[in-house]
Amino acid sequence: MAAKTQKFILFFINDEMWATPLTFGNQFISYDQPVPLPDVSKEVTGLIYGGGHIVTLLDTAKILAIRSHSKQYETCLRFDFNSDHYGLLVDAGGETVKVNRVLTDRNKKEFKKYIKFKNNKIYILYPEDIWNKLSIYD
């Protein structure tokens, strides 16, 4: 049985490469000033308007619990989930890659899945993992 090929979009945070699965709504977009939202968790940066849609921006570094070096993001990777549009704040966009295998790092408690690209481990941010970490739907 042939292995199922999966596609991932790579992006950088603090010169570290991360990956997210390729979905229909994926697109790298730029933004200037997000509109802040009241009474939301600290991972939600605000709202922007792009490509005819209202996009909710998520602070990827805070979701991953890493300290971001960037003072202000200018690029986000848009993805769709449950007909809503979200954007992951990234330092820079990367290539779109195809892989045959998704691996699991059992030593990690969250974001365990990873792929191998150019002999590097690249951990994957699945939207489900994000919603596990971030309770956006009350």
Partner: peptide, 17 residues
């Protein structure tokens, strides 16, 4: 250049879709 970069990235994404 930024637009070209986004174009490049997004074209790559669209090509892979």
């Amino acid at each position: 250049a930024e637009t070209a970069k986004f174009l490049s990235l997004n074209v790559s994404i669209e090509a892979n879709k």
